[in-house]
Simulated scan of single mutants.
Amino acid sequence: MADQASEEEVLLAKRIISAAERHDVPALKVLLKEGSANVQDPTATAATSPLHAAILSCGEAKDGKEAGDDAVQTVELLLQNGAIWNDLNREDETPGCMALRLGQKKIYDMMVEAGVRAELLFNKMQALGLGGDDVEEVEVDEEPEEQPAAKKQKVSEDEAQAVQGAVEEQVLDDVSLDNKAYLRSQLRYKPGILLDESDNAVMMDWETEIMQRHAQTLIPRAGLKVMNVGHGMGIVDTAIQTHDPAEHHIIEGHPQVHQRLREQGWYDKPNVIIHEGRWQDILPKLVEQGVVLDAIYYDTFAEDYAALKEFFSEYVIQLLASDGKFGWYNGLGADRQVCYDVYTKVSEIDLHEAGFDTQWEDIKVPSGLHGSKQWEGTRRPYWTIDVYRLPVNTFVK
């Protein structure tokens, strides 16, 4: 009976995928009453989900002609029945990646909106302490420099639990998965790059133009009080100094970075105040002291989006002057265009809820960055897309 049931499940999966591929909405509605929108055909050489099949069969958009209404309705139906927006096929493509590659803009936009809805719900569940079987996957920050809220890696729920267990034992194969593990790890400064103990690029010099532009957008004139969280290679702090701030606060948690700050004379600069430690410990004290700042920039490493959200919704709103500006290194999900677009929208929604207006400026990253030799010796590239979206946030008037 077990073999027969297994055969029935395989047959149902094949029928669901076939209906999705044909954009047969009536048949799909019936089949989804019996099976899942996330089935895969285990007998296929290129197993894929119904959502991937529906998008792939749209083909490449040519001469501005995109998918028809039947395809759009098929994708909508699958999403309504729980299809996972960032599920991966064997080619390591999400449905959104596939739609983007095929030039199917309408379908791609649908995937971005589905991702935004899913991530907002997931983040809300996390905030409420919910999860478990209700959550298909969790996000863990992977990158450098803060990885800020910037570089992220998807892991399954089981993997996340394993990571947490490893953290508790103070043993991690990848220290970027936990901020405290990162702060205990050994860093390596090399020409043009800062690496952590697990070979993650914490910061790279290709980001210099971006950091300089952040400083320009946040500090319109001399004599302002400025704070940067996360020194790393010192790129943005060097840029901040060119704008002659009256006060320049730097929060940095890593002991080796403290040593580099001493070696480079940052502690001796008359307008610079170094705060050694994690921002989670330092900012409450600054709030108690009544510190008010004209500009705040955030670029930490080994912290996820939840940390960024806590930063602006709990502390920036208390520390920033009414006419001040707040920015952060926007590298969330920058290893996939669809993930980057999703988290750009998620952050804008959450910022607005916290009382901020957000303006975006598009900056092209250096050509050939993806796949270049710059990433040799690193664990993984944290940036693979063509445009950086620079955020400037001010309080809603």
Rank of each mutant, 00 (worst) to 15 (best):
S313C: 04
T358Y: 12
A83T: 01
Y388W: 14
L12T: 08
D134V: 01
I363D: 04
Q164C: 04
G265N: 07
R117I: 03
C339T: 08
E348T: 07
A127F: 09
Q264Y: 00
L369Y: 13
G331I: 02
I16D: 07
L77N: 05
Q216V: 08
A19N: 13
E113P: 00
K62F: 13
Y182P: 00
N271Q: 13
A306Y: 10
V291M: 06
L369F: 14
V116T: 01
A47N: 03
P270H: 08
N81I: 02
D141S: 15
L88C: 03
D362F: 05
W206E: 00
E137T: 04
P381A: 11
V155L: 13
I17E: 10
L102N: 03
E247Y: 00
L293H: 14
W360Y: 13
L369V: 06
G131H: 09
E263G: 05
Y340H: 12
V342H: 10
F311R: 03
W375V: 08
Y267W: 02
E139N: 08
D24T: 05
A47R: 11
Q161L: 05
N393L: 07
M111E: 14
L120E: 12
A239I: 06
A61M: 12
R260H: 07
G103N: 05
T208R: 11
D237P: 02
L261T: 03
D386T: 08
S176C: 14
Q104Y: 00
R260K: 15
D196N: 15
Q186Y: 02
I317H: 02
T300M: 14
Q104V: 08
I282G: 11
G253D: 01
